[in-house]
Design a protein around this nucleic acid. Structure first.
Length: 491
RNA sequence: CGGGGCAUAGCGCAGUCCGGUAGCGCACCUGGUUUGGGACCAGGGGGUCGUAGGUUCGAAUCCUGCUGCCCCGACCA
């Protein structure tokens, strides 16, 4: 492990790339555009999964698993859906390999061509709705609320670890409802779940909103999203929740008999968050020393670094600290005792800073004498000496403080980087100057949205929920506008 | 997918212009001294120079194809 990572001010994207690798989160694999998620990175993802899974179940959803492969014909059943994904699908055309004449090279057996080619799922609406057709007959079968944890593949041109990879991990929820109102309610409920998770666990403030027609999920009537602002002033779409209307029900002929024995198409939703959240987590909190993790998602919340010269000293520290470590664990706090003698304390300090461990406890002979420990917090890089008998309570409180501090800090950053623009000049100036969210009047047309994107590289991130209605003129066309929308350059 | 850059030990790089059989720092191994912010000294191991061809007595070095990575664009969560 070499020391240090580039600073954020020098080159933010270089900083990000190096941090992901140096903190042992992930690396590029031998397969183009695909990443290997390393144990430390995967441990964070597992924490994300565990909490989201709990929240999904609490809101009445069950997990299931649908196949990786989708018959090509399924995708084309919903016209807009196929348009949205056709350009980035991996296709399975053969089912067998064989040795060539020389016997040395494996080749695709031309005899083994699939009659019906299979698509590696870019998302699973189509296979799932194909099953829903068989599962739903009556209003008594509704609502049907499923989620699956899965990998999906979208053949991307340009990839970045966690933010955009060809294969990625996610969850996709797919629900079916008897009424339009209930489906919309579900779409909004899951958006709230995402917001709560992002804010309470990732300590990442998000703005809930609705996507414009242009940015909408292919096949949805309405796409809701949570948008976060990264440290470099670029926005990140962190999660989406789609109201599908009856589009997929009609495409896959999913009808149910209502209480009056009348056949109706069901109403659908789908919603997802992906390993992209890892990118958001990193870019929301981390600094030039490395990763900064919110306590609720840190694989190790506390690391204890003993400082010793001899084996006897180490043993004395072990014996002294054991009950305190146990007491922390009894409170549900994860504690790592790094008593390796192969690395020096200073090395360990730097290492755990790089890996974002929220709290570090150092204990040496001096502390044993004084009945104290040195407690350092990763977020503010401050340390203080605490009496041993107060240590458990202190750390418990400190972890809570860090969780809240990270959120407040990120929120302050977002607020400081959200501005209003009343002209194209102003929009451009803000974007080039410091980036961030820019609230501006827009005439509501896709045409204008695209023109603005062309000239500024900024897109409409969302129309915030509960957006104040305010008469104005579109900054591009000068036409009347009823509200401001949020523009930003985005990941 | 277009433009540019890069590919030499696990990592970061020099050597390439001007062809003569590979070097530095970190990491690793051994021994010793060390240990409260990435220790020091001594010794040691590790590379068919991304890959496939070509030119040449001889290629990391020159030529061509391919692959991968990084940056910039178009596409996207």
């Amino acid at each position: 492990m070499s020391k240090g990572i580039p600073s954020r001010s020098e080159d933010y994207s270089q900083w990000y790339n190096e941090l992901v690798k140096k903190a042992d989160l992930a690396e590029n694999s031998a397969v183009r555009g695909c990443m290997t998620i390393k144990p430390y990175g995967y441990a964070i993802w597992e924490k994300i999964q565990a909490e989201l899974d709990r929240m999904f179940k609490e809101t009445g959803h069950s997990n299931a698993y649908f196949p990786l492969f989708i018959p090509k014909s399924y995708l084309s059943k919903e016209a807009e859906h196929v348009d949205g994904f056709a350009k980035e699908c991996a296709v399975v055309t053969h089912y067998r390999l064989k040795n060539d004449e020389s016997g040395k090279n494996l080749i695709v057996d031309p005899e083994a061509k699939l009659e019906d080619e299979l698509i590696v799922r870019p998302t699973s609406e189509t296979v799932i709705w194909n099953s829903y057709k068989n599962w739903i007959q009556s209003y008594r079968d509704l609502p049907l609320k499923l989620n699956q944890w899965a990998n999906v593949v979208r053949w991307e041109m340009r990839t970045r670890l966690f933010l955009r990879t060809t294969e990625f991990l996610w969850q996709e929820g797919h629900t079916a409802h008897a009424t339009r109102e209930e489906a919309i309610e579900e779409t909004e409920l899951m958006l709230d779940v995402y917001e709560k998770f992002a804010q309470d666990f990732m300590a990442m403030p998000v703005i809930k909103g609705i996507k414009t027609a242009n940015e909408r999920f292919a096949g949805a009537l309405e796409t809701y999203c949570i948008e976060a602002l990264m440290q470099d002033g670029k926005a990140l779409q962190a999660g989406t929740s789609h109201f599908l209307g009856q589009n997929f029900a009609k495409a896959f002929d999913v009808q149910f008999s209502d209480k009056n024995n009348k056949l109706e198409y069901v109403w659908g939703t789908s919603w997802g968050v992906s390993t992209r959240l890892m990118g958001g987590l990193i870019m929301t909190h981390s600094d030039d020393q490395g990763l900064v993790l919110p306590p609720k998602l840190a694989p190790n919340q506390v690391v204890v670094v003993p400082i010793f010269k001899s084996e006897d000293q180490l043993n004395a520290i072990r014996v002294k600290m054991q009950p305190f470590i146990q007491a922390l664990r009894n409170k549900g706090i994860s504690v790592l005792l790094d008593d390796r003698d192969t690395h020096k304390p200073g090395w360990k300090f730097a290492e755990y800073e790089l890996k974002g461990v929220p709290v570090r406890v150092a204990v040496g002979p001096r502390d044993l004498e004084n009945e104290t420990v040195e407690v350092a917090r990763r977020d503010e890089k401050t340390k203080e000496v605490v009496g041993m008998e107060l240590m458990v309570e202190h750390i418990d409180q400190l972890l809570e403080d860090i969780q809240i501090n990270l959120f407040n800090r990120a929120k302050a950053h977002r607020e400081a980087n959200t501005h209003e623009a009343n002209s194209m000049d102003e929009l451009n100036r803000i974007l080039d100057d410091k980036g961030g969210f820019v609230s501006a009047h827009w005439d509501g047309t896709t045409e204008t949205e695209l023109k603005i994107k062309e000239s500024t590289k900024a897109t409409i991130r969302c129309i915030p929920l509960g957006n104040p209605q305010e008469a104005g003129v579109c900054i591009y066309s000068g036409k009347p506008s009823i509200q401001r929308v949020l523009f930003a350059r985005a990941y």
